[in-house]
Write a protein that binds this DNA or RNA. Structure first.
Lengths: 186, 186
DNA sequence: CCGAAGCGGGAACGACCGTTCTCGGCTGAT
DNA sequence: ATCAGCCGAGAACGGTCGTTCCCGCTTCGG
């Protein structure tokens, strides 16, 4: 695979990310990805042999980027309690962004989880990776039951995203943060 | 509209409910609804002039049924605190059901929310109706800020459903219940 | 300069889906 | 009995989408 193919892969993934996230996977055809990326269908199908595999690559890159962005935000703080709460500050900023359309992974799972087993696996892997990261943040707290606390914080993250999506308001991040603050040990 | 049409409407809605919920809306064609309901396409389109309107009717009936089931469960208790926590017990039982596939409203919103404005409105109305019901349950508690508490409980409900969907486990209901118990005034 | 291989643009194909139409048969009033 | 109108079954239509194919052009080694 040549380096012109590498560049094409990046451009295709950029286009897929924009279009899949903002319009949904089933609503976006391969020709729209060709139009936005400028990569002809022939090369596009050489880089990604099927739409299903492109969807998986889209999800894998989102996973990498999102978790890196979260870690960067959390890294701004040193106090263990603030590090956990910063997760919900990050959500709040995200909900404010113009193109916010909910969790790409949950959306993909609803749309193609039944037909694209590898995509479904990728969604679950993302969820588990985020939980593992949260578990690390919780580990340095003096929690009575760190695993249970992590699970509760995960429910708050997921619920905030989905409630923000449906209500169209960023407030659920505040509600989740307030709930998390009550659950954390002082 | 005759009563044979009424019977057809019910059979079509039954079929749509089963198929839309378990396979997704876009994955189910009108012919599969015809096959399962036994209602010929001609009559089906007289009862529901388009698939979009059938989707809205499907969501509206789900809203009615789900909220009635929730109210029935909560009604088994008289203690105000137990009435709130019973919501999460209900979720736990629901997650155990064989055909559980997440929240029909969130799924519909992800799948067709962009193309079917009336369906999107119906999803938001359901969310608001559930919140209003929760607000009633919270109202009789001695909460410092009942509205804020209601918002936090809503985030826990939504998060439990979505986390259960992706992990395939009913445990998120327990986690949400534990978090809610911590948030409720004693 | 020449032939071959690879390229991009876009047409083509096959499958599917929402919706409508056709056709043969049944019903029921006269 | 007859004729008009309605019905169910399924074919047909128009559009979309994922994927492949064709054609004319470029490029580059000999």
């Amino acid at each position: 695979m040549s380096d012109v193919d590498d560049q094409a892969r990046t451009r295709v993934l950029d286009a897929a990310d924009t279009l899949f996230y903002s319009h949904g996977i089933r609503a976006v055809g391969m020709d729209r990805i060709r139009d936005l990326s400028g990569v002809p269908l022939r090369r596009l199908y050489r880089c990604f042999p099927s739409k299903d595999e492109l969807v998986v690559a889209y999800l894998r890159r989102r996973d990498r980027v999102a978790r890196a962005a979260l870690a960067e935000r959390v890294g701004r703080h040193t106090d263990p309690r603030e590090r956990v709460l910063e997760v919900y500050e990050w959500l709040h900023d995200w909900f404010h962004e113009a193109g916010f359309r909910g969790c790409a992974f949950t959306n993909a799972f609803s749309e193609v989880g039944g037909d694209n087993a590898e995509a479904a696996r990728t969604v679950r892997a993302h969820q588990q990776a985020v939980r593992a990261y949260l578990r690390e943040l919780v580990g340095v707290l003096n929690a009575a039951d760190p695993d249970s606390l992590t699970d509760q914080l995960m429910v708050l993250v997921s619920g905030a995203i989905n409630t923000a999506l449906i209500t169209g308001s960023p407030e659920p991040a505040r509600h989740a943060r307030a709930a998390a603050a009550s659950l954390l040990p002082s």
